[in-house]
Design a protein around this nucleic acid. Structure first.
Ligand SMILES: [Mn+2]
Ligand SMILES: [Mn+2]
Ligand SMILES: [Zn+2]
Ligand SMILES: [Zn+2]
Lengths: 162, 162
DNA sequence: TATTAAACGATAATTATTATCGTTCGTCAA
DNA sequence: TTGACGAACGATAATAATTATCGTTTAATA
């Protein structure tokens, strides 16, 4: 596992490698993100960064967060943020999610062997349930575009096949 | 597992039990939701319902979807929809999510035994990774309000403790 | 069948996010 | 070191998803 220190040190190098200018704003935004062990919203990042750069714009935070996500410097916690996805199946079950078309398929609970945690990092956490997502590319999408080949074909191509 | 038929039959009974009027709009909205094995957005539900009730309003779909979610007739696929949550930890790992304050805690991959799927329901799905979420109530929230007691304390109380 | 509160449709408002555009700044070659 | 230039910035407008408001309609029940 990378330490926060080494990540911050590597930041400049990584930007250079990606052809990204190393601006003060970017340095502070990224610094705040690795400094916190939390999973903040762009708005929350903005609040923290504003303490160090009062003139920064929320738009700049959004732009750079997107840049960092594209570059792989950051990850987003949920694949399906942005719009509500409904499930009429109220029985406990799991999901398979296609990163290309965003379709979601059910997996019955019985298809998984029992999940067991060695020990909870957060003490006092009351577990309600486990939710497993199998993340990947569905058959239809894989057939349409094998591998990650094909020029100009990015991750967020398929507009609404929901 | 409940069949779609029995669910649809029970709809009226369930509404009565919940004190909800059995309207044409509600019946069709719920019918479409259980008829599809998909996990549609409210917009997609609206499109399908409009074929049967051309005069229906998108607002009505949203209102009833919310009503159904509150009543437990529907579930939402993702706990963290609505706003982007960022993660500076790009190593593979899992999460613990508090349903009260929406905070997210890391769980190292090593804390879980190997997850194995018996067989994929969708053929041709290329698995990229497994993502496990431990859903429950964090220590702080549990201490603040044990059980689901306390009047007027609903699931979406804590406004932004992100 | 009349009463009435709940639900509806239309539409305004809000929130999260993205786009536009003129100005500023980091990069790099001279 | 400096100057040119394109990338990035801040301000702000625009868009998308969702929620709120409000006058009208309708389901429930007596
Ligand atoms: Mn499902
Ligand atoms: Mn994490
Ligand atoms: Zn797909
Ligand atoms: Zn909590």
């Amino acid at each position: 596992m990378q330490t926060r220190e080494s990540l911050q040190q590597q930041f400049e190098t990584r930007c250079r490698a990606l052809g990204l200018a190393v601006t003060h704003q970017r340095t502070v935004i990224y610094g705040e993100l690795i400094a916190t062990g939390e999973h903040p919203t762009p708005e929350a990042v903005y609040e923290r960064v504003k303490a160090q750069i009062p003139a920064i714009s929320l738009g700049t935070v959004y732009k750079n967060v997107k840049t960092f996500l594209d570059a792989g410097l950051l990850k987003e916690v949920s694949l399906h943020h942005g719009t509500l996805r409904l499930d009429a199946n109220t029985e406990p079950h799991h999901h398979m999610v296609c990163t290309r078309c965003r379709r979601i398929f059910d997996i019955p609970e019985t298809e998984f062997g029992p999940v067991h945690l060695k020990n909870l990092p957060e003490s006092g956490f009351q577990i309600d349930r486990f939710s497993i997502e199998v993340v990947g590319v569905c058959g239809a999408c894989a057939a349409a575009r094998p591998e990650s080949s094909g020029p100009g074909a990015s991750a967020a191509d398929n507009k609404r096949v929901l």
